[in-house]
Amino acid sequence: MTIAPDGTQQGSSRHYLAMRDVIQSMDDTLPGKFEITKEGIVHDMMAPVGPHELTTLHLRKRLEKVMPEELVAHTGTPDVEAEVEGIMRHPDVMVIAWVNMEVPGSFDPQTLIAAIEVVSRSNPDNDWVGKVRDYPLIGIPVYAIFDPRTGSGAVLTDIHPTPDGPRYATRKDFVYGEDVTIADWTISTEGLPRCPA
Rank of each mutant, 00 (worst) to 15 (best):
G153A: 10
V119L: 00
P91D: 10
N100M: 13
D158T: 06
Y143G: 04
V103Y: 14
F107E: 07
D92W: 07
V80K: 01
G153T: 08
Y135R: 05
R121Y: 04
M88K: 15
T75C: 07
G105N: 09
D134Y: 04
I140A: 00
R133C: 11
D125L: 15
I159Y: 14
G86C: 08
I140G: 05
I145H: 00
I140E: 00
R149L: 10
A154E: 14
Y135K: 09
Y135Q: 01
I159M: 12
M101Y: 01
V84H: 14
G151I: 01
A82T: 04
P163I: 11
G105T: 03
I140Q: 08
P124T: 00
V142I: 15
P124A: 01
D147Y: 02
D79K: 11
I87C: 03
N123G: 00
A114F: 09
P166Y: 08
H160Q: 14
V93M: 06
V80A: 08
V103T: 15
Y168Q: 05
Y168M: 11
A73E: 02
D125W: 10
V132D: 02
P136C: 12
V119M: 05
H160K: 11
D108C: 05
V142N: 09
W98N: 12
G153S: 12
I116G: 04
D127S: 10
D125I: 11
V129E: 07
P104M: 06
E117Y: 10
I138H: 10
L112T: 07
F146Y: 07
P136V: 04
G153K: 04
S106E: 09
V155G: 08
D158A: 11
R149C: 15
I87A: 02
Y135F: 13
S120K: 13
